[in-house]
Nucleic acid binder design. Structure first.
Lengths: 154, 154
DNA sequence: CAAAACTCGTTACAAATGAAACTGGTCGCA
DNA sequence: TGCGACCAGTTTCATTTGTAACGAGTTTTG
């Protein structure tokens, strides 16, 4: 039958999702098995490790995550003693999140694993392909703009 | 601070996920608002429309979806009268799924919308970039192999 | 041809998610 | 100063998902 000329594997949102899931799969198994972590948890951890201490809201902005998700991830990471909170002195609503040494160690383990998984992934692409791929994805994701926002806007 | 040289927006699984979510967002709003559909539901619908009638298990294989997800999506689509089931004569465990005319109409609407959203997305990329992008994503997704499997293997 | 092993699809229960209400805190402005 | 609008982060509740067990049917194998 095959009605219409729409071809599913050419539809970019679909293709992107399939590629994203396939690409994330091994890494996900790793951090789940090893630290019982959820996706949002490693993301929060990585944001703190890569960009330094910051508030939950700032992580929401950088990672396009909803604040409830981040709130729960922060709670989980605190329970695991991977981070600590400190009330900001400027604004007592804000909590400044910092990784503990333990959290930092976990980050180093995870980022090492991440790099290995990524290397495996990229094995099937030429370096040139990888370059073009990242550039295109960066444009699509809108990740470029966000990271330019200053820490304390205006 | 910025510990380690790991740069999050270069990590492919992360980048892919961000791009995938950004790319899916508008389309998701559309099918949710218009038909109260979930992601798995449109995927099932599209598989039937693009590849013709098939069983739930075959959709699982093609789309890398878990059978419970597909089972629930099929139930929802049946409730909405977008598809019907017919017990296979060869094997009474299997249900052959077919779109109703109504389901087909919905597909035509959704695929039209999908194409418009995709066009918008691709506006920021050159045709050449798009070509490379799709090719790389296809390799990463493993979607290439799956679609080659015959309907009745061996 | 009967019992064991396997497959299709559903269901039941636990865990994760999303939306909205809520708590405590800050800011603007009369 | 005090009141209303706004913001950070949490909690609650409904929805969605994942896992494991299940019922019914088929295939294998002895």
């Amino acid at each position: 039958m095959s009605t219409g000329d729409f071809h599913l594997p050419h539809f970019l949102p679909y293709l992107l999702n399939q590629a994203a899931e396939a690409a994330s799969h091994e890494f996900q198994r790793y951090y789940r098995a090893r630290y019982g972590m959820l996706r949002t948890e490693w993301r929060v951890l990585f944001h703190l490790a890569c960009y330094g201490d910051m508030s939950a809201t700032r992580i929401c902005d950088l990672a396009s995550l909803h604040k409830t998700k981040v709130s729960r991830a922060v709670a989980a990471l605190e329970t695991k003693r991977f981070l600590t909170r400190a009330e900001s002195e400027d604004d007592r609503r804000v909590e400044l999140l910092s990784l503990t040494p333990k959290g930092l160690t976990v980050f180093r383990d995870l980022s090492g694993a991440a790099e290995r998984f990524e290397t495996d992934l990229l094995e099937h692409l030429t370096p040139d392909e990888v370059l073009h791929l990242r550039s295109a994805l960066l444009k699509l994701s809108g990740l470029g703009e966000r990271s330019l926002q200053p820490d304390v806007p205006l």
